[in-house]
Structures are given as structure tokens and as C-alpha cells.
Amino acid sequence: MAAGPDVRHELVVKKSRFITVLRRVEDESAARLLVAELRREFYDARHHCSAFVLGPGRGVQRSNDDGEPSGTAGLPMLEALLKRDTGGGAVPEAMLSDVCAVVVRYFGGILLGAGGLVRAYSESVSSSLAVAPLVRRDRMQLFTVAVAHGDAGRLEHELRSAGYTMTGNSYGAATTLVGLAMADDSSVIAAAQDKLASLTAGRAMLVPAGTDWVDTPLAAR
């Protein structure tokens, strides 16, 4: 899920309100902070059920029924997160992670039964994910390219148009460092250096700047 404002979505089932909030989180503390925030905001709600998935291998998975019958809320929410494919296929790197879902329930006076609760909590999360902005997160090699200030905008545009992931610029007294990321593959890096040479008449070079997780909007892939 993309960083940014929370995604909120409401589902009404037999007069019960299910308010889902999704947030990009990096660790368990951030996930539990979201739950605490929503307990304060929706202080009069009966249930604040939650589920979250963390890590590139989705090694951390937690769920909480918060007073609903065991297995009818948190677990269906977690399964909805785990089933959501971000568009890259059935490999771990293409599956959803680093996200917390909280469903706040206001009881409407009509009992839903165990099956009804499972369906409602699962659908609440699934329908929220359907409108959430998602990104693909990859471990990528980072580089900078030093160019004159007046050339930075054109170079960044050309590289972006060629399909490279840009990571932002930094500015020095005499030059701009244009940042970009690419797969840690020697042939990809060599091709990028050739492209850079053609754009700068051989004056600029790729300078390694480490590795990091980089987000790419799915629409751009």
C-alpha cells in the first residue's frame, strides 16, 4: 500500500456499520498506534478489530477479534490482506505487506451469526483494498548522477521517460545530484550507463549510492 492518507471505507450489513481504516505501517508499533487512535476516535463503538501484515516475506502476521466470537473478525480480515495480489503474480514479492487494517463495528441490533460476521469483516477489508492506492516495493540499487543545475531537469525527464525510477535530487554549490534506482543487475546497470552517456555526451557517470526498498506505483509498471 502506498504511503499517504489512510483509506477509509464503510459497509452496512443489517444495520451494523463496519468502518474500515487501512494504513501503510512499517512495524508493529505503528500498527498498534493506529488501533489506539481509532479507539479514541470511535470511543462509543463496540468493537475495534484489527489485522496487519509486515515485512518483505510477510513474516509478521497478527489479528485481533476484540470481543467478537473467536475467529469471526480478525482472522477473516487477515486472510483478506493475505489474499490480495498487488498485480505481480503469485510470488511473495507481489503480495500485499506493510499494511494494517482496523474495522470499527457499530452494532445495529440484528445478530449476524458467525458466518455473517466472517463475511462482513472479510468484505469490509477486501472492498477497502479495492480502492486503496497500491505500490510495488523492490530492493533496488541506488545511484546518483552529478550534472550542472541547468541540465538536471532535462536529464531527469529523459531518464524518467526511458522508464527509470527516479528517487529525488539533492543540490550542491555547483551541481545537482540526480537520484535514480534500478535492479541490481550488471546488464541493467551497463545499459543505464550507456543511456546516460548518450544523454550527456559522455560527461556524466553513475555513482553507486547503496541499496534500499523503493516504491513504484503499479500503474507505472
Rank of each mutant, 00 (worst) to 15 (best):
D65R: 00
D66H: 07
G67E: 06
G67H: 07
E68F: 02
P69Q: 13
P69V: 15
P69K: 13
S70H: 15
S70L: 09
S70M: 15
G71C: 08
T72P: 00
L75V: 15
L78D: 01
E79H: 10
A80D: 03
A80R: 00
L81M: 07
T86K: 10
T86P: 04
T86N: 12
G87M: 12
A90N: 11
A90K: 12
P92C: 08
P92Y: 08
A94Q: 15
A94W: 03
M95P: 03
M95W: 13
L96H: 01
D98N: 11
V99A: 02
V103W: 03
V104C: 06
R105N: 05
Y106R: 06
Y106Q: 11
F107W: 15
G108A: 10
G109D: 08
L112C: 04
L112P: 01
G113L: 11
A114T: 15
A114Y: 09
G116E: 05
L117C: 03
L117Y: 01
V118G: 00
V118H: 02
V118M: 05
R119F: 06
A120N: 01
A120S: 13
Y121S: 00
Y121T: 02
V125L: 11
V125A: 05
L129F: 05
V131H: 07
V131M: 15
V131I: 10
A132V: 04
A132C: 13
P133A: 10
P133D: 14
P133C: 11
L134A: 05
V135F: 13
R137Q: 10
D138L: 09
D138V: 12
R139C: 06
M140P: 04
M140Q: 05
Q141V: 07
L142E: 03
F143C: 02
T144C: 07
V145P: 02
A146P: 00
A146H: 03
V147H: 00
A148P: 02
A148V: 07
D151K: 12
D151T: 15
D151G: 11
R154W: 07
R154G: 07
L155F: 12
H157Q: 12
L159S: 00
S161L: 08
A162F: 13
G163E: 08
G163W: 10
T165N: 15
T167S: 10
T167G: 11
G168D: 09
G168P: 04
S170H: 10
Y171A: 15
Y171T: 13
G172C: 04
G172Y: 06
G172L: 05
A173K: 14
A174V: 15
T175A: 11
T175W: 11
T176L: 08
T176E: 02
T176I: 08
T176P: 00
L177T: 04
L180E: 02
L180D: 01
M182G: 07
A183N: 05
D184A: 13
D184N: 12
D185S: 07
S186C: 14
S187M: 12
S187Q: 10
S187K: 12
V188L: 10
A190E: 13
A191D: 14
A192M: 09
A192N: 02
D194P: 02
K195V: 06
K195T: 14
K195F: 12
S198H: 07
